[in-house]
Design a protein around this nucleic acid. Sequence first.
RNA 1: GCUGUUGUAGCUCAGGGGUAGAGCACGUCAUUGGUAAUGACGAGGUCGGUGGUUCAAUUCCACUCAACAGCACCA
Length: 661
Amino acid sequence: MANPAQSPLSLEFPDGSVREFDSGITGAQIAEGISKSLAKKSVAYVLNGELTDLAEPIGSSGKIEIVTRTDDQALELIRHDCAHVLAEAVQEIWPDTKVTIGPVIENGFYYDFDRDEPFTPEDLEAIEKKMRQIIARNLPFEKRVVSRDEARVLFENMGENYKVELLDAIPEGEDVKLYSQGEWTDLCRGPHMPSTGQVGNAFKLMSVAGAYWRGDSDNQMLSRIYGTAWADEKQLKQYLFMLEEAQKRDHRKLGREMDLFHFQEEGPGVVFWHGKGWKVFQSLVNYMRRRVEEHGYEEVNAPQILDKALWEQSGHWGWYRENMFTTVTEDDRQFAIKPMNCPGHVQIFKNGLRSYRELPVRLAEFGAVHRYEPSGALHGLLRVRGFTQDDAHVFCTEEQLEAECLRINDLMMSVYADFGFEEVLVKLATRPEKRVGTDAMWDHAEGILRNVLEKMTAESDGRIKTGINEGEGTFYGPKFEYTLKDAIGREWQMGTTQVDFALPERFSAFYIDANSNKKQPVMVHRAICGSIERFIGILIENYAGHFPLWIAPIQAVIATITSEADDYGEKVAETLREAGLRVDTDFRNEKISYKVREHSLAKVPAIIAIGAREAEQGTVSIRRLGSKHQTSMTLEEAVTSLTEEAIAPDVRRKRDAKAAA
RNA sequence: GCUGUUGUAGCUCAGGGGUAGAGCACGUCAUUGGUAAUGACGAGGUCGGUGGUUCAAUUCCACUCAACAGCACCA
């Protein structure tokens, strides 16, 4: 870039046309050359996939695209520029505040400041006002490439010690770039739009929060301001509306309204399941129990409390002691309440001699585990201290490993589909810093998973997208993390598959191979729901409380219109119960509209209203949740359609397969 | 765990140095009403906990517990 070569540039445009330009020409000049209107709208260009300042000379030949403010790619620039404007606004109001970093994040941006006083909501309003002023000034973003020393002197003089630290972290050989908007200058990698005016007004400061400098809890805590920014008002409104929708789905709120569960002070992070919530829980466990059985697992149950020695042997004591609930008995023996099921399952595997003929051994458990999670991490059902894992451990030979991983993947994808999650992101999490085992072992295990990931993606018909989570594996092995998208586009991490060569070794687990030699099995840890509690929380949010019939705690309420219909109402309820449906009756002396309202708010899937007319004709009037209308049918028809709908998806699948055969 | 905010009836919230108030929910009575709130009356709270200041604390202060948002953590 520093060398304005004389050779002409050959640039290919999105429409496929190729044109020659003199070197040294900038993106802005190219846009100008195409049309005045394009020049006006353009905010940056993309050269060979790299987003670049409009004012930057084109560095090489290749594919070029002029980015206008309304392009998706410009959103990142709007947000990044908005972060700069935010920082300038804050320093204009409070000049003593030090700036640190302000990156773009999903839906917006944030900026971390060092300031003695925390920001208040009123401060946010003042800052936002100032930001709109700065945007109205519409001053150009000007880039300067400077020497390290020059930048260092500049920031030291400004007292911006965080910027000096960031400067020192820029790798040798990389340009040090400064961006200024008027008087205000920041160390920044860029790119930016031509001027602050292009940020527009479709932004909003959302919240203030503490955040550690460089994300390290050993460092000082800074004040972070979060904002959201969009290309136009409409998008902003849409986003704010989505947030409101998400709030309405909050499982903590719905859990209370639907009378599913509660929490109270004496038990931080442990759930009080009410009758209805426990019904959902049981439906889910029963479903998983059937699925696991059909996939060749054996359900077991390992003790809640085990001697510390076992946890030392597994390595958990070393890594996670602070997060374990422990107890010391009268005779000074130390025990731990299990935070995991794996050591228990290894003991079951090890009990007695195992032959290679038995492998793979697949042990499943709905294991209640307890972890002393940091108080700040607790969040409704999504992060608790006592929960039930749909856990399983597969002990197999190395030759069987790949097939077992693929088999697990099949089960996972099928389970997720049964709950309506079609799109799945599978990330491979690789070796973390805190780990056991040799590098060779890790190379081996990661290699196998990479291979498996490729295969299952290929076989998924596009349902599986993949990614890598560097350094996020467990201490005993790499893992897959299954992430699902819910009904309103939020992502949740759910299942995981972990390959483990370390624990079998630590516990000296072995089997007898075909040559009568002792051999160490490989162990695969896997959970599909992850935690039943968490899974239910996610289901509540995903369905917004509108559970499908097969999992709804109360499937129908029989509500009589007048007391004359009570006898018939009782008969209807009996009939439906005999057909296996979970039915409540509401014969209270209340108006039907009152009953409809109440059961609708409680998210009962079907309200069956019964009056004199129905009693006389032997019919029922069904109003489905979410509908404003009702359908009249005979009692027999109602039984048939409701029981059919209430069949769990796996049971229906089996029945249909049988019928087809 | 860290930063910040919050804690008043079952729920949503108002109030404020002189021991509390609304709506909904709850109970009783009347009402038998055809698909999202029938009416009247009534009951319900040592204002998260502990300690301090004060003649007096739910209100002010300190500590503590819990929740919320974010960060850090998540075997």
